[in-house]
Write a protein that binds this DNA or RNA. Structure first.
Length: 367
DNA sequence: AATGAGGTCAACCGCGTGCTT
DNA sequence: AAAGCACGCGGTTGACCTCAT
């Protein structure tokens, strides 16, 4: 036996609100308020609507100071940053954007921002196609190749953050699902991790600077960077792992409260239970330490037996230039208006996307 | 001009939580 | 303590709009 309906479904009007209904509801609430009972409100107002429908209409449309459309670039960045950080907790994200409703932001993310990001991915795929078709001289266009790799790196950063921070059983948090990586791919991964506090995060969490918080080690313990010695951790003599430690320290820096422009901080946001779903909130906001330990396991299994050769390091160095553009906040906005955005979803295609991202790297490696 | 595909967004639905009785 | 209820949330739907063919 299911829950009793909140109203008589047969006697309530559904569908779009008429201007008359809007006027009635607005006039009543302006004069008397909601009375703390949405269910009883429609009767008082004289509307044949469900109380929940009235509430939604008021909150999303009739309420004063509501903004519709015309999202600014800064708002875009905040939404992206918070989504990466806390996932689809639209009410919390909306709380950071005065005048915006959770419904509006949710729609905006699903219809625009997500596709903006994926559109870039598609463009990258196109670049890959063109880069695998060298011109008649067999000389490949170096700029397109670099753009491809750069794009792939940035996508991986965002995607890994999305997956690891949001979904505890995601591809990225499940070593069993990880493919065997080419040493080069591992290097790229490490470089990506070192940028996990990427520019997007800087918008919502402006207090964090890359490499500015070497206070927490990969074991989640507070560490004085001056006293951290080589050998303090089992793998610290391995250059890859040293790099990982630095990377994870950066990640771990977000464990510290980071001020937002409105006076709250990151921990305020990430520690807010999902209203109505408190049990899920812990999973929704993955503790960074879990991500760290998973990565540590990953490095244990993936770096053993591999020693980077000098020429390989040289190849890695050719990607240093990539980092030059990482402070560009607008990397994902280039094709904002691109009509070619696919209907892929982050969630359903994560593994496939991951594999294709790695294919990007493989291509770059083969160049 | 007609039509179909894709995009947008307001509204609905169902669920978990917490308050009240 | 337990049941009932309203609230608030995120996910989903479907009507409407726009654009390409």
């Amino acid at each position: 036996m299911g829950r009793a309906p909140c109203c008589d479904k047969n006697n309530v009007k559904k569908g779009p609100w008429s201007p008359e209904e809007d006027d009635k509801l607005k006039a009543y609430i302006d004069q008397f308020g909601t009375g703390g009972n949405w269910i009883a409100l429609p009767q008082k107002v004289g509307l044949k609507r469900c109380g929940k429908s009235c509430r939604l209409r008021w909150l999303n449309y009739l309420r004063p100071n509501i903004k519709h459309g015309g999202f600014s670039e800064e708002e875009d960045n905040i939404i992206c940053s918070l989504y990466i950080s806390i996932g689809s907790r639209w009410s919390i994200i909306a709380a950071q954007l005065p005048g915006r409703t959770d419904n509006d932001i949710k729609n905006y993310w699903n219809t625009r921002l997500k596709k903006k990001l994926l559109g870039r991915r598609k463009q990258s795929a196109n670049n890959r196609l063109s880069s695998t078709n060298p011109d008649a001289n067999g000389v490949e266009d170096s700029s397109s190749s670099q753009a491809l790799s750069n794009s792939a790196l940035e996508r991986l950063q965002l995607h890994m953050q999305l997956q690891s921070l949001q979904n505890p059983i995601s591809f990225y948090n499940n070593p069993a699902l990880w493919p065997k990586l080419h040493p080069f791919q591992e290097k790229i991964l490490l470089q990506s991790l070192s940028e996990i506090s990427n520019p997007l995060m800087q918008y919502a969490f402006p207090g964090t600077q890359q490499g500015d918080a070497q206070k927490v080690d990969i074991y989640g313990q507070l560490v004085d960077s001056d006293t951290l010695q080589q050998g303090d951790h089992p793998k610290s003599s391995d250059s890859n792992v040293v790099s990982l430690e630095n990377s994870l320290n950066v990640i771990a820096s977000s464990d510290s409260p980071i001020p937002l422009s409105n006076g709250t901080n990151v921990m305020d946001l990430t520690s807010v239970p999902r209203a109505g779903m408190a049990d899920q909130s812990d999973a929704a906001v993955q503790p960074v330490s879990n991500f760290q330990s998973e990565l540590e396991n990953f490095l244990n299994s993936k770096t053993s037996g591999f020693t980077a050769q000098g020429d390989q390091i040289g190849e890695f160095d050719c990607f240093k230039e990539m980092n030059g553009s990482r402070d560009n906040m607008n990397w994902w906005s280039n094709d904002f208006e691109t009509k070619s955005a696919s209907s892929n979803s982050w969630d359903s295609t994560s593994v496939l996307q991951s594999e294709r991202v790695f294919q990007d790297y493989e291509l770059a490696y083969n160049m």
